[in-house]
Amino acid sequence: MSPGVLFGMCEAEKKDLYAVLGASPSDSVQQLRHRYQQLALQYHPDRLRGECSSEAESGVKTFLEVDAAWRILSDQNTRRQYDLQRRAQELKQDWPVDSTVCLEDMTWDQDECVFTYCCRCGGGFSVSEEEVEEETQRRQQDDEEEGTVEGQNRGVVVCCDTCSLSVYVTWSLHRKTPTSKWQQ
């Protein structure tokens, strides 16, 4: 295994590579390839030349994450190893996490100031803007104290209001605030 793949595997323990590609662990390699190609075209550095420097930098970072996720998930052996690590991590948790959801994929409810996401049981998951901000600040402080690399995704486990399922809601530290993004 190349050093780049090993580094990617270490990073993979902290990030859901399927979520990076907007995919599911049950997706075929062809489905993963399709998602990778869509995202690679969208965030490729050559496509972002006219953007402002912060948007271009964010796009390049996303492109590198997508590319790293694809390198691991496209190879049968590294995908199997990643899936085993992922499953081992899930077994260590005290709650049944059904899936990982990106905050950007949740619906912003301006009246309640919460993000919502529908559960397969018909219930819903919700996380407040305040919870997101508190978790982001807490993690930033932890990163500063531990000297951790910035820019990693952050997240919280959110329980369904009807059944026993939970989802892990993730977001980037460098995201726009919900009110500025979703009120437009």
Rank of each mutant, 00 (worst) to 15 (best):
W182E: 10
R80E: 12
L48N: 08
E150R: 13
L32D: 00
G122C: 07
E57M: 09
D105Y: 02
W70S: 06
G122H: 03
E131L: 01
Y168W: 11
E145L: 15
L32S: 00
D27C: 12
C160Q: 08
A68N: 08
H44D: 07
F7G: 15
S2Q: 09
E145K: 13
V5W: 00
F125T: 05
E131D: 08
A12R: 01
A40F: 05
G151W: 07
R87G: 00
C113I: 15
S99C: 07
Y18M: 00
Q30Y: 03
T136P: 00
S74T: 07
G50I: 15
Y117C: 04
S53H: 11
R175W: 01
F7H: 15
D143Y: 14
Q85R: 15
R47A: 13
S28H: 02
E130K: 14
A19F: 01
D143N: 12
G124Y: 03
L32A: 00
Q85K: 13
E11F: 07
C10H: 10
L48G: 15
V114G: 04
L91P: 03
E144Q: 04
Q81H: 02
P45K: 05
T78P: 01
Q81F: 09
E133D: 05
Y43D: 00
K61I: 13
L165A: 14
T116Q: 09
W70V: 04
